[in-house]
């Protein structure tokens, strides 16, 4: 007789998600930008349209076969301000997009990158940060960590003023410097009255991982698109994390992402990459994504930052 025994509590389930080939983010606007009115919004959309068309054409030309699935999304900044309710903003955005000839498949809320349905999403990502080691890091000492900050190398030595005066200033070092350093120290969060306020780069890093379908909470996906509610609420917090505007849209998650952004976001995206380089990935999830893409004849980069592309747009 063959017997088997197992306990489900010892199993780790990992949920799969549906993938597009490419997830395109169409610009990013602060709430204040929406206050500038519909005309401003339309001019932004008109600015995005040609870059988007070029990007999709280029992507399609590079794909070996078939028409790739491309979904588009738009991230609403409801974390740092909550000036315009969904009932006003969404119709405005849809109309501007329609008139500008750009298809918006999904709208996501930035605050869902911090916390959503009781899951501390940003904290999950922060927990997986592993600082880039400088040469000689052998495990014998705990990693040097400044709470709430993450750098791309080794900071300048600091100490009591008296001690520092004894020595000449020593520069910080970028761990992956090529001859010379570009040292970046990113603030991940600030704290006020015990409440943690996540920084824009931290939330943008979560946003990228979310679009790449790499986020899990106890093996479950956290952020999944939901249909547009019939009655739009007055508060963003009552909205789903990702709202599907286009019923026939390709899946929200993408094997890779492209963000069409205004040049003002260059600094933030550099910080995002500094963060993402240092997030240890769930190897199970990573393996499955690579395998699934391969089954469709698509090779995705092994590293997360290799899956993320940008076009920084110029207003000619």
């Amino acid at each position: 007789m063959d017997t088997s025994f197992r306990e489900t509590s010892t199993l780790r389930r990992v949920q799969d998600v549906a993938y597009s080939h490419l997830s395109v983010e169409l610009d990013h606007l602060y709430m204040e930008d929406f206050l500038l009115g519909e005309q401003h919004l339309r001019s932004r959309i008109e600015q995005v349209a040609p870059w988007f068309e070029t990007a999709v054409r280029t992507f399609e030309a590079r794909r070996p076969s078939g028409r790739p699935r491309v979904s588009t999304c738009f991230l609403v900044d409801d974390y740092f301000s909550n000036l315009i309710p969904p009932a006003e903003l969404l119709p405005m955005l849809r109309e501007a997009a329609d008139k500008g000839g750009v298809r918006v498949d999904y709208v996501a809320r930035e605050s869902a990158c911090a916390q959503y349905e009781g899951v501390e999403v940003a904290a999950i990502v922060a927990g997986r940060l592993v600082s880039v080691p400088v040469e000689g890091t052998d495990g014998s000492r705990p990693p040097v960590a400044e709470s709430g900050w993450l750098s791309n190398g080794q900071r300048s030595p600091s100490g009591p003023a008296e001690a520092l005066r004894m020595h000449a200033w020593q520069p910080p070092v970028e761990a992956e410097a090529r001859q010379h350093s570009i040292f970046v120290d990113v603030q991940l969060w600030s704290e006020k009255d015990g409440e943690r306020l996540w920084s824009c780069p931290m939330l943008a890093a979560v946003w990228q991982l979310s679009r790449l379908g790499l986020l899990r909470d106890h093996g479950r996906t956290i952020i999944q698109p939901r249909p547009l509610p019939e009655d739009l609420p007055a508060e963003w917090s009552a909205m789903p994390a990702v709202i599907q505007l286009n019923r026939s849209a390709a899946p929200f998650h993408g094997y890779c992402t492209l963000s069409l952004l205004d040049s003002r976001f260059l600094g933030i995206e550099h910080a995002v990459r500094v963060i993402l380089d240092q997030v240890t990935q769930d190897a199970e999830v990573m393996t499955r994504v690579v395998q699934r893409a391969l089954q469709e004849g698509m090779r995705v980069a092994q590293d997360v930052t290799g899956r993320i592309a940008y076009t920084f747009m110029t207003d000619f």
Partner: peptide
């Protein structure tokens, strides 16, 4: 969407190589 069961997973599995 599928949920797949895996035994206690070890992320650095030489057998997968």
């Amino acid at each position: 969407m599928r949920a797949q069961e895996t035994p206690a997973y070890s992320p650095t599995d030489p057998a997968r190589d």
